[in-house]
C-alpha cells in the first residue's frame, strides 16, 4: 500500500524521522547488540577479566537445574494465567453479551483493573492473603486450610496467578465481548429454530466463530505472563519460597542485580528475545491467514 500523492524534499523526511531513529538506535539496537555480545562473554564479579567463550553461557544455562526449574515455573504460571484468565473472562463476556439492561454499567465495572499497575495489584492481594492478618486467609484458616504463601510453594504460585489473572481479566473481557457482539444473531436464531439449546449453540456456533479472538488472546496472555508480570512477582513473593515463583524474567533480573553474573543474565535475555520473536511471528502469520473456521 503506497500513497499516490507524495511531497518532495531532500531533507525534510530525514528531519521528521530523525527523533524516532535516534531513540531506536541508542536505546534499542545498541543495547540489544550488547546483549548478544555479552551473552558470549565470561566476566568475573569485578569485571576485571573478560573472556570470549562462544556459546558456553548458553550451555551452562541449559545444564543448570535452577534455570530449567525457572522454565518449568514460567510454563506452569503462564498456562494457569492464560487458561484461567480466558475461561473466566469468556464466561463473563458471554453473560454480558446476553443481558440487555445495564450492559454498559457492567462493562465499566469490569474494565478498570486493566489500569491498575501489576505491582499494585500484587500488593492488594498480599494484603488480602497475608497469612496473619489477611481477610481472605482468615476465611481459609476457618475452613481448615493452613494458608501461608510465605512458606508454601503451591500457595505462593496461587497468589501470583490470582493477582495476574485479576489484572488481565478486563482486557480479555473487552476483546471477547467485541468478538461475541460481532457474531450475526441470525445464525443463532436459525440454530434455535432447529432446536439447538443454549449450550449446544455456544459450542457449535459461538465458540468456533470466536476462534480468531481466542487465538489472539492466547498469544497476548502468554506474552503478558512471560514479561509483564515481573511487578507482581517482585512485589509479592520475590520469586520465593525456594524459587517456586521465579519466572524467566525475574531470574534475569535476579542474576543481573544480585548474583552479578552479567554473562549469564545476558544469555538469558537472548533466550527471552528468541521466545518473544517466535511468539510474534506465530501471531503475525496467523493473523495474516485470518484463521479458517
Amino acid at each position: 500500500m503506497e500513497k499516490r500523492v507524495v511531497f518532495r524534499s531532500s531533507w525534510l523526511p530525514y528531519a521528521l524521522i530523525a527523533p524516532q531513529m535516534a531513540i531506536t538506535l541508542v536505546f534499542f539496537f545498541w543495547p540489544a547488540s550488547q546483549a548478544l555480545w555479552q551473552s558470549m562473554l565470561l566476566q568475573d564479579a569485578f569485571a576485571a577479566k573478560t573472556q570470549f567463550v562462544w556459546f558456553d553461557n548458553f550451555k551452562d544455562l541449559f545444564a543448570d537445574p535452577r534455570y530449567l526449574a525457572s522454565f518449568r515455573v514460567t510454563a506452569v504460571f503462564s498456562t494457569l494465567v492464560t487458561v484461567l484468565g480466558l475461561t473466566l473472562s469468556l464466561l463473563l463476556a458471554a453473560f454480558a453479551d446476553r443481558v440487555v439492561r445495564f450492559g454498559a454499567v457492567y462493562k465499566t465495572l469490569l474494565i478498570w483493573p486493566y489500569a491498575v499497575a501489576t505491582a499494585v495489584a500484587a500488593i492488594l492481594f498480599v494484603f488480602l492473603l497475608n497469612p496473619t492478618i489477611g481477610v481472605v486467609s482468615l476465611l481459609l484458616h476457618a475452613m481448615g486450610v493452613d494458608w501461608n504463601y510465605l512458606i508454601n510453594p503451591t500457595h505462593a504460585m496461587i497468589l501470583v496467578v490470582i493477582a495476574a489473572v485479576w489484572k488481565q481479566i478486563s482486557y480479555n473481557f473487552l476483546f471477547f465481548l467485541a468478538g461475541l457482539q460481532a457474531i450475526p444473531k441470525s445464525l443463532l436464531e436459525a440454530a434455535a429454530i432447529d432446536g439447538a439449546g443454549p449450550a449446544r449453540r455456544f459450542w457449535t456456533i459461538v465458540f468456533p466463530l470466536l476462534s480468531p479472538t481466542t487465538f489472539f488472546l492466547v498469544v497476548v496472555n502468554i506474552v503478558y505472563a512471560f514479561f509483564d508480570t515481573f511487578g507482581i512477582i517482585d512485589a509479592s513473593t520475590s520469586g520465593g519460597p525456594v524459587q517456586a515463583t521465579t519466572t524467566l524474567v525475574f531470574k534475569v533480573y535476579q542474576d543481573g542485580t544480585q548474583a552479578m553474573d552479567l554473562g549469564s543474565s545476558a544469555a538469558q535475555s537472548v533466550i527471552l528475545m528468541a521466545i518473544v520473536v517466535t511468539l510474534t511471528v506465530v501471531q503475525f502469520r496467523f493473523i495474516e491467514r485470518k484463521v479458517q473456521y
Binding site: F7, F227, D228, V252, L272
Partner: peptide, 29 residues
C-alpha cells in the same frame, strides 16, 4: 508522505522494535 532513500530500512528498523519489550533487554539498556 515522502519517498526517500533508506525509507524501507527505517521502516524495518522501527518494525523490529515491536517485538522486544523492555524487560528482555533490561541490563544492556
Amino acid at each position: 508522505y515522502f519517498r526517500f532513500p533508506l525509507r524501507r530500512t527505517c521502516f524495518w528498523l522501527i518494525f523490529v522494535t515491536l517485538m522486544l519489550p523492555v524487560e528482555v533487554r533490561i541490563f544492556p539498556t
